[in-house]
Simulated scan of single mutants.
Amino acid sequence: MEAVLSIKNLTKNFGRIKAVNNLSLEVKPGQVFGMLGPNGSGKTTTLGMLMGVVNPTGGEFTWFGEEPTHHVRKKIGAVLEHPIFYPYLSGQKNLELNAMIKQCPEANIPKVLELVELLDRKDDKYKTYSLGMKQRLAIASALLNDPTVLILDEPTNGLDPMGIAEIRELIKKIAANGKTIILASHLLDEVQKVCTHFAVLKKGNLVHYGPVDEVGKGEETVEVLAEVENLNELLLSFAGTSSINRENGSYQVAMRDGFHSKDLNKFLFEKGVVASHLITRKKTLEKQFIEILASS
C-alpha cells in the first residue's frame, strides 16, 4: 500500500537549535496518525514543513508519492493555528468566503456543516460561537475541498471536557468516512483514544513509532487480594508470574507472555484460594510515553 506521506531525514534548524532532526516516517492511507510529544518537541515545525509554511533545512518528503506541489497540496486540509474568521459574519458566510478563496463549490458547505454539527447554528455570527464550535467550524473549513488528508495541530487545545469529547468524536467520524488524519498533540489520552498509529518526538528526534494497539502488549499486570497468609509464596509459585510488587496492600503480579488473569484465578482456585480482588491492568500509553522519554 503506497504511503500517503513519506518523510526521509527531514531536518529544520533555527540557528544552532535543531527543531527537527533527521525525521523519517510513513503514514499509510486510512490511518489516524498522532505526533506526540511535549511542547518544543518539533511537532508544529514538522507540520509547518509538510504544509509548505516552513522551509526545511534538509531532507525530503512526498505526498502520495509526489513532490509537494500546489496541485498535491490541494488534496490536504489543515487546521494549523487558530483560523481567522470574521467575527461579525455568520458561520455560513465565513465558509462561503473560504470556498471562494479555495475555489471549491459552495454546494459542499451544507455537507461539512452537518458533519461538524453546526448546521443549526450556521446563520449565527461567529463571535457568538463557543471555543469548541469555532474549532469545529475550522475543521469544516479544512474539509470544504473534500481533501484526502486532514492535518490538525493540537485540535483540543484550550477546550473544556465537553469540547474535547466533541472533537474526538468528530475525528473518529471523519476517519470512518475514509480520510487519513495526521494530528499533533501533547495529550496522551487524546492520542490513545483516537489514533491508530503514533510517533513520539523529543527535542526534534523521533524516539518511538508504531501502532497504538501495540501499547502495553505483553505487559499485563494483575492486581490481586486474597484472605490467605501465604499469598506471596503462592503467587511466586504460579508458572505465569514474571515478578511481584506489593502496592497499597495488594499484590501487583507482572505476567509472562501467554498468561492472563483467568489463568492466575484458576491456579488460585485450585489451591483453595478465592481472590477477593483480581483486576487486570494493561500498561497505558502514559506509562509507555514516560518510559520512552526517560530512556531516550
Rank of each mutant, 00 (worst) to 15 (best):
G65A: 01
F198G: 14
L119A: 15
N265Y: 02
K75L: 12
E214G: 05
V72S: 01
A142P: 13
M35H: 01
I76K: 09
G216C: 08
I17L: 13
L89M: 10
A275E: 04
H186R: 00
G40L: 04
L235R: 08
K102M: 05
N265K: 08
N232D: 14
G15D: 07
G34E: 13
L97C: 12
D124H: 14
Q192M: 08
K125M: 02
L206G: 02
D120F: 10
K18C: 11
L131V: 06
K8D: 07
G52N: 10
M35P: 05
A184T: 09
K74T: 01
I84Q: 13
N94R: 03
I101W: 07
A199L: 11
P155W: 07
T62A: 13
M51G: 14
L159T: 05
L236V: 11
N21A: 10
D263W: 06
V224C: 13
S250K: 14
V112L: 02
I84H: 12
L236S: 12
L144Y: 03
L183T: 01
H260N: 06
G218T: 03
P105D: 05
A254Q: 03
E66I: 04
E247L: 12
A199K: 05
L188I: 15
S185M: 11
T156M: 09
E2M: 04
N108L: 01
I76M: 11
V116E: 03
A294S: 14
F85E: 07
G37S: 03
D257L: 02
L225R: 14
I7W: 06
N145E: 00
L10H: 09
G15T: 02
D263S: 04
V149A: 03
E229R: 15
R281T: 10
I174Y: 02
E169R: 15
T57R: 10
A239H: 06
I109E: 01
N248K: 08
K93V: 02
Q92E: 03
D160G: 12
M1S: 08
E81S: 10
A175F: 09
E233C: 06
C195V: 13
A78V: 15
